[in-house]
């Protein structure tokens, strides 16, 4: 009984290790494919379209509402301390540092990540990947690498749009509805939000999230059991693992960047 339990634990541990190994192998192979990708930019453009352009609507709408909520909530808290002029700082800092990169990554994991996993998993299940391999075309370089870099490039741009729209949303609510002074909304923001500390770090975060979310999504598809059940499980795992990885990494990155 005990031995059986230990053996099961060992097996699953080995399974996790093996999967981690395969995942890193895949990441390495995709990174090595960048040279070939540069010679065929059209492949990359299509993938930026799939991840980026098709996500714009959800990103802009979410960003607007998150910014508006921040404006409302921030105003009620700050006005208790007579510091409603700092609303701009609060909205901008929380968007640029945290909410922009994190919420964008979560939305992309849900919208584009799951689609990537399902696409790759189905291509595997329908032998399209093997078919490519038999045509002497490397499916990692031809299919996975463009999707990977498409995600990595699109993510920081989407996050920037999210934050920018959010700041405007906060402005509409704070200045337009609640009567915060427009001048102090912007000037306080500008004096307190630091380019190196906040903007650059936010962009770094979203690049890291872009790598992690697309990598997880592609790997889950590529490693999926090639049946309809296997693909559906892989799609779920892709979103769950992607979201957990984003939140966990966000803590680590925040501690490294702002925790001195």
């Amino acid at each position: 009984m005990l031995l059986e339990g230990l053996a099961r634990l060992g097996r699953s541990g080995l399974g996790v290790l093996a999967r981690l190994g395969r995942g890193h192998q895949l990441l390495g192979a995709m990174l090595l494919g960048v040279g070939e990708l540069l010679r065929r930019p059209r492949l990359l453009i299509v993938q930026i379209f799939n991840v980026g352009v098709l996500s714009i609507l959800i990103i802009v709408v979410s960003g607007l509402f998150v910014g508006m909520v921040l404006g409302l909530q921030g105003y009620y808290v700050l006005s208790q301390f007579g510091a409603a002029e700092s609303l701009g700082v609060m909205v901008a800092a929380s968007l640029v540092r945290e909410l922009g990169p994190v919420v964008t990554a979560l939305l992309v994991a849900g919208r584009a990540g799951s689609a990537l996993t399902a696409e790759i998993g189905l291509m595997k299940a329908t032998e399209q990947l093997s078919g490519l391999e038999m045509m002497a075309v490397d499916p990692v370089r031809r299919i996975l690498t463009p999707r990977f870099f498409g995600g990595v490039i699109a993510m920081p741009l989407l996050a920037a749009m999210f934050s920018a729209v959010g700041v405007l949303g906060g402005y509409f609510v704070g200045v337009g509805l609640l009567g915060v002074d427009a001048g102090s909304y912007w000037s306080q923001m500008q004096s307190k939000v630091d380019f190196d500390q906040d903007i650059v770090n936010g962009v770094i975060k979203s690049v890291v999230f872009g790598v992690v979310v697309t990598w997880i999504a592609l790997f889950q598809g590529y490693d999926a059991v090639p049946t309809s059940e296997g693909v559906s499980r892989a799609t779920t795992r892709s979103v769950v693992h992607g979201a957990l990885a984003v939140l966990g990494l966000d803590f680590v990155l925040t501690a490294l960047m702002f925790g001195d």
Binding site: V96, A160, A164, M189, Q190, D198
Partner: peptide
């Protein structure tokens, strides 16, 4: 959007 964040939002 990045330019807006850099010039209008940050210092």
């Amino acid at each position: 959007a990045l330019f807006f964040l850099a010039m209008q939002v940050s210092n």
